[in-house]
Write a protein that binds this DNA or RNA. Structure first.
Lengths: 163, 163
DNA sequence: GCCGCAGTACTCGGATATATATTGTCCGAGTGCGATAGG
DNA sequence: CCTATCGCACTCGGACAATATATATCCGAGTACTGCGGC
C-alpha cells in the first residue's frame, strides 16, 4: 500500500496556496518545493479537476484555492491525487473454486471486504478532520511562527507586478 | 493507494487454514479459491517469513497457522503481504527549495507527515481489532452457519490419507 | 490625451516516453512416506 | 513377521519474465498584459 508521491506535493502546495490571494503559477510552486515543474503541474491539474483549486490562465495566471483553507480537508486532497477507489478491492473470490457461493447469495459484501472497508473509513475519518488551515498552523508552529510569513514574503517578492 | 491483491488471498487463506489442524498445501488453497497456484504459494511464503504460518515439507506437508486464529490479527496478515512501510513517505521537501529549513531544525516529523501517520495509525488500529477467528465467524454467519463446515469437509475429503 | 487593435509572453491542459512495482511463472533443494529386501 | 534401506512423490523456497502502474516530460491551445497606431 503505497501512496503516490504527488500527494505530498499537493498537500504542501495547498498549504502554500493558502498563503496567497493572487494566483501562483505551478512553476513557482515547484521552485519553492524543489520538485520537477511539469510533474507538480500535473498534480495541480488533478486538484483543479477535483474542484479544490481554480486555474487562472494568462500572463499573471496560476492556481488559487477555491475555498478557504479551513474548508478544505486533507482527505479531499488525497482523494483528488490518489483517486477515490478503496485500497482493498474485493474480487469476490468467495464465488470462485469448488465451494464458490452462488452470486445470488452474495447480497452483502464479503466479511473480509467489510473489515477492510471499516479500516479505510477510519483512515478517511482521520484525514477528514484535518484541514489545510490546520496543517498551515501546525507547520507555522513548528518553525516558531515564521514559516508562513516567509512563504508569503517569498511569494510576493517573486511576482514583479506585486513587489 | 492500492493494496496488493495478495492480501485478499492471504486473508481468505488464513481463514481457511483456521479450519484445519493438518497442513494444507498451497496448491489446495489455490484450488479452493480459484487463484494461480504459484502466486498463492508466494503469498504463503510471505506469511511464513512473518511467522504467521508454518510450512511443513514432505509428502503430506503444507501450511498451518502457528497460533490460534483468535490470536492472529488482520493487521498482521496485511503487513506480512504488503510490507510494514507506511503509505505516506515524507521526502522532507520542507528542506528543499529556496525556503528550505535546515536539517538541524527538523527535529520532529513534518506536520503533514504527522497527520498522515495519525490516519495510518487509525487504519492499523481498526485492523488490529479484527482477528482471523472473527473473520471466520462473520463469513460463517453470512452463509447461515454452513460455510466453515463445508470448508472443513472439503479439506478432509481432499486429503486421501484422512478420508 | 484617450481608445481600439495587434503582438507577445505567459499560463494551463492533455497526450506522450521511461522507471518502477506488482503480478505471474518456473525450476531446483529438501523432506517424509512407502515399497522392498534382508534378517 | 519385524526392521533397515532405498526410491520416489510431494512439498516448499527462491530466482526469473510479463504486465500494469506511477513517474517524469514535452508540446499545443488559450488568455491577459503591453506596445503601437489612429482618433
Amino acid at each position: 500500500m503505497k501512496l503516490s508521491n504527488g500527494v505530498e506535493w499537493a498537500l504542501h502546495g495547498c498549504v502554500t496556496l493558502s498563503q496567497s490571494d493572487s494566483p501562483v503559477p505551478a512553476a513557482r510552486l515547484a521552485e519553492l518545493h524543489g520538485t520537477p515543474p511539469a510533474y507538480m503541474a500535473k498534480q495541480l491539474q488533478a486538484l483543479s479537476r477535483a474542484g479544490i483549486v481554480r486555474s487562472t490562465p494568462g500572463q499573471v495566471g496560476g492556481y488559487t484555492l477555491t475555498r478557504p483553507a479551513s474548508a478544505i480537508t486533507a482527505l479531499e486532497v488525497v482523494r483528488a491525487i490518489d483517486g477515490t477507489e478503496p485500497a482493498y478491492r474485493c474480487t469476490e473470490i468467495r464465488q470462485q473454486g469448488p465451494l464458490g457461493v452462488p452470486a445470488e447469495e452474495c447480497t452483502r459484501p464479503c466479511a473480509i471486504a467489510r473489515a477492510m472497508a471499516a479500516a479505510q473509513d477510519a483512515w478517511a475519518r482521520a484525514l477528514a478532520q484535518i484541514s489545510i488551515a490546520d496543517l498551515a498552523t501546525a507547520i507555522d508552529a513548528d518553525s516558531g511562527g515564521s514559516a508562513m510569513a516567509g512563504v508569503r514574503r517569498w511569494l510576493t517578492a517573486g511576482t514583479p507586478h506585486n513587489g
